[in-house]
Simulated scan of single mutants.
Amino acid sequence: MDDRLVAAFAVMEASGFIAPFLFILFHILRQFLFIPVALVCMAGGLLFGSVFGSIYSLIGLTLLSVLFFFVIKGVPTFAERLLKLKEKWFGRNAVLTTGQIAVLKLIPFVHYQLLNLCLLERHREFKPFLRAAFLSNIPLAFFYTVFGQYITTFSPPIIVMIILSLAVLFYLLREKVRVISWNEFFPSK
């Protein structure tokens, strides 16, 4: 585990009743330390147990999404960089559903703020964005907090099966749109 992460959690463990607040704050600050979300959620499960670790991770990730909402509106260069990254990963016209974003958040190497940008493109107002961010963070917080200690012991075939099942779930949660051509809609006699 990263030395910065170990040091931060040693401080939290020794801080007593303010540990949950420090953990939630660490969720917000972890992006500046380049620590993956999954590691922080796993550590929350070890520090606070599955239930409270999931709750604290969910609160921290939702507050991070709220911070993202206001920062992205105030820093257009950050938004442009993320839009270029989105175009590179998903294509120019990709519009992901909240379910797809929740599945992608479970994959550790997908950029968390990029997925928040995809949520923001779908939900421009604050309340719908906050609701979608909260819902898409639930699987992430729950999965990595509860099952985090077991993930490291998975064999490569199990990891491949999990990734494949996430890919199938991603496909099933897509927005279903059927394009009808002009000639099909208005058949000629």
Rank of each mutant, 00 (worst) to 15 (best):
F26D: 04
F26I: 10
F26L: 12
H27M: 10
H27L: 01
H27Y: 14
H27I: 00
H27T: 03
H27G: 05
I28T: 10
I28K: 10
L29E: 02
L29T: 11
L29I: 05
L29F: 10
R30G: 14
R30F: 00
R30W: 07
Q31T: 03
Q31G: 10
Q31E: 03
F32A: 11
F32S: 09
F32L: 09
L33K: 14
L33W: 11
L33Y: 12
F34T: 04
I35A: 05
P36R: 02
P36C: 10
P36T: 01
V37P: 08
V37M: 03
V37D: 07
A38R: 05
A38C: 12
L39P: 05
L39E: 15
V40P: 10
V40S: 04
C41G: 04
C41R: 13
C41T: 03
C41A: 14
C41Q: 13
M42A: 15
M42W: 09
A43P: 01
A43W: 00
A43D: 04
A43C: 05
A43G: 07
G44I: 03
G44A: 04
G44E: 09
G45W: 02
L46A: 11
L46C: 02
L47Q: 12
L47N: 00
L47P: 09
G49I: 14
S50P: 14
S50M: 13
S50Y: 13
S50K: 12
V51W: 12
V51M: 08
V51F: 10
V51G: 15
V51Y: 10
F52N: 13
G53Y: 03
G53P: 07
G53Q: 01
S54R: 12
S54G: 13
I55C: 07
Y56D: 02
Y56L: 00
Y56F: 11
Y56N: 02
Y56K: 01
Y56G: 02
S57T: 03
L58S: 04
L58K: 14
L58T: 09
I59V: 15
I59D: 06
I59S: 06
I59G: 05
G60F: 07
G60D: 09
G60Y: 04
G60A: 13
G60R: 04
L61K: 00
T62W: 05
T62L: 06
T62R: 00
T62I: 02
L63Q: 10
L64T: 15
L64V: 07
L64E: 15
L64A: 15
L64Q: 15
L64Y: 04
L64D: 15
S65R: 01
S65K: 12
V66S: 01
L67Q: 14
L67R: 03
F68S: 08
F68T: 09
F68C: 06
F68G: 08
F69K: 03
F69R: 03
F69H: 09
F70M: 08
F70A: 12
V71K: 03
V71A: 10
V71L: 08
I72V: 14
I72S: 07
I72G: 08
K73I: 13
K73M: 14
G74S: 08
G74C: 06
G74Q: 08
V75M: 09
V75D: 09
V75E: 13
V75N: 08
V75T: 05
P76Y: 06
P76G: 07
P76T: 06
T77W: 15
T77D: 11
F78R: 08
